[in-house]
Amino acid sequence: MNLIREVRTHRRLPAPDDARSIRERAGVSQARLADELGVHRVTVARWESGTRQPRGALRLAYARLLLRLEEVSA
């Protein structure tokens, strides 16, 4: 069932504005989030502006991280 969980998480990627709000509510900078995911801060800025979207394993990691941030900042 791990595959099903991954697919659900993959599809749960919030809208760019929502992703930014989740990060900000958690008190996390774009740079810190980027470090956690192993990408550049500009990459996170592009995701949050909606000009780009993460793909593949990175999309899954981003979705999971946002979900955890949302849980701890609620």
Rank of each mutant, 00 (worst) to 15 (best):
N2L: 07
L3C: 12
I4H: 13
E6T: 09
E6A: 08
V7N: 06
V7P: 00
R8C: 03
H10V: 07
R12L: 13
L13F: 08
P16R: 10
P16C: 05
D17L: 14
D17N: 11
D17P: 11
D18C: 13
A19Y: 04
A19I: 01
R20C: 10
R20G: 00
S21G: 07
I22W: 06
R23M: 05
E24M: 12
E24A: 14
E24Q: 15
A26M: 11
V28Y: 00
V28K: 03
S29T: 15
A31R: 15
A31I: 14
A31Q: 15
D35G: 08
H40Y: 12
R41H: 10
R41V: 09
R41M: 11
T43P: 01
T43I: 04
G50R: 05
G50P: 08
T51M: 10
T51K: 11
R52D: 14
Q53D: 09
P54M: 06
G56I: 04
L58E: 05
L58N: 08
R59Q: 09
R64V: 08
L65Y: 06
L66T: 02
L66R: 05
R68C: 12
R68H: 10
E70C: 07
E71T: 12
V72K: 10
S73Y: 06
S73V: 07
A74L: 14
